[in-house]
Design a protein around this nucleic acid. Structure first.
Length: 745
DNA sequence: GCCTCTGGATTTTTT
DNA sequence: ATCCAGAGGC
């Protein structure tokens, strides 16, 4: 069986999987079986070569990818992968720091600050450094610091290199911020990587242990690594040098998060003996879709010469559609989705709609709701960013790490305990004067002789809060985790507090959801569950929970769509200013990234691809007329059609006489909520529906945008009406009565 | 402490 | 158009 393990791979894939010694760069085009190669390579290492899984390190970019890979490997290797290190850079580094961070002064109980905590701390740091947030927005400073961290620039180095006054300001805040992180016993996301590199450089003996252990390294999505991550790879691979990196420069779309596709080009320089393998056969898309993709990306300069080819059938032409505005664009998508699923060839879950900006999802959602077609929105407010979830987690974090003043500040007056801004500031000042953390100050202030200058009432409140948390700390060591969870929720008063909130019910549901996340930790001995629980909630994202099997059309940003595939893909908003986004206009490098983004979208499609644009689009209040996207120009016209379907008449604006409303029995909101767990119930938008149409064929009408026209036909659509009007200047337009502001003339 | 008003911004967000 | 943060009033 060992020989045949790789029999499912094509020759190129097989070579890449079998080249197990020395540095390897695998350039893998979209749909070329990259994941397959990685998993088989690991399986081959373990089963055929006999490598102990303990000696393998595999890095993915998302937890989801890590989980999926683990599942595949478990199937392939029957469960011997437990000892393998498999996870994101961040998760792996968190583990290393937990184990060995004390060598550089990071205590074992450290917490991970997310973007939200980071912002709060930075605001405080800026205030402490006397920086006026009006003059120097905290956001800009945050970006500067994060970018500095991604390039391994320490506060000291940053100060040395400061070239203008803004840099000076940033340096000041950066120094202060770092100090505060240490005081809070916290690290931010960037630190997880940075501190690990620092640990390795400072303590070669620790690095050596990891170097010795990991005989084989694998890095997926290498094009999206940043300098720090690459540095980690180089350090860890320093001993055995068996490092395989897999990536595709054409799919690098995260440069704004400091991903540096130069890593791909530098790999050959840093590992001159690297072998390079190309995976160029595409198994995913039809030949036409693939050619469209190639034509879109061909104009970029920063490329590796990956030549995609396929044995798949040519397939249908790619549909290019122009709508009048984003509402019509959305309507076209919904109708076509209905048409495709009506023919039973596709299910709704086979279909995805992709867009550049989240704001574009709105018009789409409205159309899906209006037509009663189930959809699921990836995004919305992310679960772990919801206030109630963050609040409760703040309790747990404080219990776990009382030095975490950011968490303390978050909850000290939630629910209200009569501790306002003023009392807290006093207490902070008092703490600082004595070199105490806030929590220590709470403890000390009740017995101190020189108490902070506060009312007895405030002091009592602080004391009650202190005793509350102190009690929780003891509880956490004594009871099963879920019992502890419930106790915190109840005795903190948070549960009662939520109950009386306007949207309390929903918030409590989110808490219940968090509780299910806590369940798996219940089996651990008392006192040992809190830490792993917190770790698990710090490093997850919402995409991790995207359920691809559930019914409904997927609405997703192009960024989030990376790594996914769908039989049918609609990309909307192919207009100058939207895709490419106008913020990229003045930077050629960014423009190339927009092109890659478009390429990523196109290559998600297996069988059918639709590229839509709107003539006019409302943006930030106003309405603009956009040119078609430059990315459409490169597409050879023999690959495309402007008909909705090549086999049907070319009349995209005339209603397709189809049974469109098979889902429409229940109220639309209920359906949307049902299929889109992560879509907030903000979807309970109300729809004002007109009664019978006051229009019939032949009526003269006026439209605020289109001008004068005559009604051609009306068509009852659920509880709305679709009206086709022939306008003097604009020709035929199909309008929804509830949308169009028509008046009779 | 909670409510309301105003001004500013508004790409993408794997961790 | 809309969402959010911060300010100011009750």
């Amino acid at each position: 069986m060992t020989i045949d393990l790789l029999k499912d791979l094509n020759p190129a894939q097989r070579k890449a999987a079998e080249a197990i010694s020395g540095p390897i760069l695998i350039l893998a085009g979209p749909g070329s079986g990259k994941t397959r190669v990685i998993t088989y390579r690991i399986a081959y290492l373990v089963r055929t070569v006999g490598v102990n899984p303990h000696r393998i390190l595999a890095v993915t970019f998302t937890n989801k990818a890590a989980r999926e890979m683990r599942e595949r490997l478990e199937r392939l290797l029957a469960g011997s992968v437990k000892d393998m290190t498999l996870g994101t850079f961040h998760a792996i580094c968190a583990g290393i720091l937990r184990r060995d961070g004390e060598a550089i002064g990071i205590q074992r109980e450290f917490v991970i600050f997310d973007a939200d905590d980071q912002e709060k701390l930075l605001k405080q740091a800026a205030a402490d450094a006397n920086v006026d947030p009006k003059q120097y927005p905290v956001g800009k400073i945050t970006a500067a610091i994060s970018s500095a961290k991604s390039q391994m620039t320490t506060p000291e180095k940053f100060r040395e290199n400061a070239r203008n006054y803004f840099d000076e300001i940033v340096a000041r805040v950066y120094e202060r911020y770092e100090k505060m992180l240490r005081q809070n016993n916290a690290v931010d996301f960037d630190d997880l990587l940075l501190k690990t590199v620092f640990l390795f450089k400072r303590h070669p003996e620790i690095l050596k242990r990891y170097q010795e252990r990991y005989v084989h390294l694998l890095v997926d999505e290498f094009q999206d690594t940043n300098l720090v991550q690459y540095e980690l790879v180089k350090l860890l691979a320093g001993r055995h040098r068996n490092v395989a990196v897999v990536g595709d420069p054409d799919q690098s779309i995260y440069s704004w998060r400091a991903a540096d596709l130069r890593n791909v080009f530098n790999f050959e320089r840093d590992f001159p003996d690297a072998q390079i393998y190309y995976l160029e056969q595409n198994y995913r898309s039809t030949a036409k879709i693939l050619q469209v993709a190639s034509s879109v990306i061909a104009d970029n300069r920063a490329r590796k010469d990956i030549k995609l080819w396929t044995e798949n059938e040519p397939g249908d032409p790619v549909c290019l559609l122009e709508a009048y505005n984003e509402q019509e664009e959305a309507q076209m998508v919904v109708r076509e989705a209905e048409r495709l699923t009506g023919s039973k060839k596709y299910r709704l879950s086979d279909i995805a709609v992709m867009y550049r900006t989240n704001a574009q999802s709105r018009a789409l959602e409205e159309a899906f709701i209006r037509y009663g077609v189930p959809y699921k929105l990836v995004a919305g407010t992310r679960f772990y960013e919801r206030r109630e979830v963050k609040d409760l987690i703040a309790y747990f974090r404080l219990i776990h790490n009382p030095a975490d003043s950011v968490s303390l500040m978050r909850i000290i007056n939630v629910p209200t305990r009569g501790l306002g801004e003023k009392s807290i500031v006093e207490m902070q000042a008092w703490a600082r004067g004595r070199g105490l953390s806030l929590f220590e100050a709470l403890e000390a202030s009740s017995t101190a002789v020189d108490k902070p200058p506060l009312t007895a009432r405030a002091l009592a409140s602080f004391d009650i809060f202190y005793k509350l948390i102190q009690g929780f700390i003891e509880d956490s060591r004594q009871m099963p985790f879920l019992e502890f969870f419930d106790r915190v929720l109840e005795r903190s008063g948070y549960q009662a507090y939520l109950k009386v909130q306007p949207d309390g019910e929903e918030r409590l549901e989110n808490i219940a959801e968090l509780r299910t996340v806590a369940e798996p930790f219940n089996g651990l001995p008392p006192g040992e569950a809190l830490s792993p629980f917190l770790e698990s909630v710090s490093l997850v994202s919402d995409l991790d929970n995207l359920d691809e099997t559930e019914g409904g059309v997927t609405l997703i940003t192009l960024h989030q769509a990376k790594g996914l595939e769908f039989p049918v893909v609609f990309i909307v908003g192919l207009e100058e200013g939207v895709l490419p986004h106008f913020r990229s206009f003045d930077d050629p490098a960014q423009m190339e990234e927009e092109r890659r983004l478009c390429y990523v979208g196109v290559t998600r499609a297996k069988r059918r691809l639709y590229l839509l644009r709107a003539f006019r689009r409302s943006l930030m209040g106003g309405s603009t007329v956009n040119e078609p996207s430059r990315f459409l120009e490169a597409i050879p016209s023999n690959l495309t059609t402007e008909a909705v379907s090549p086999n049907e008449p070319v009349q995209p604006l005339i209603p397709l006489q189809k049974k469109l409303y098979q889902y429409a029995e229940r109220p639309p909101q209920a359906q949307a909520a049902q299929v889109s767990k992560s879509a907030a119930p903000g979807l309970s938008r109300t729809h004002v529906r007109p009664s019978a149409p006051a229009y019939k064929t032949g009526d003269q009408v006026r439209h605020p945008v289109f001008g004068d026209g005559v009604v051609i036909s009306t068509l009852p659509v659920k509880d709305d009406h679709e009206i086709v009007v022939s306008f003097k200047d604009r020709g035929l337009k199909k309008l929804l009565l509830s949308f169009a502001k028509l008046e009779k003339t």
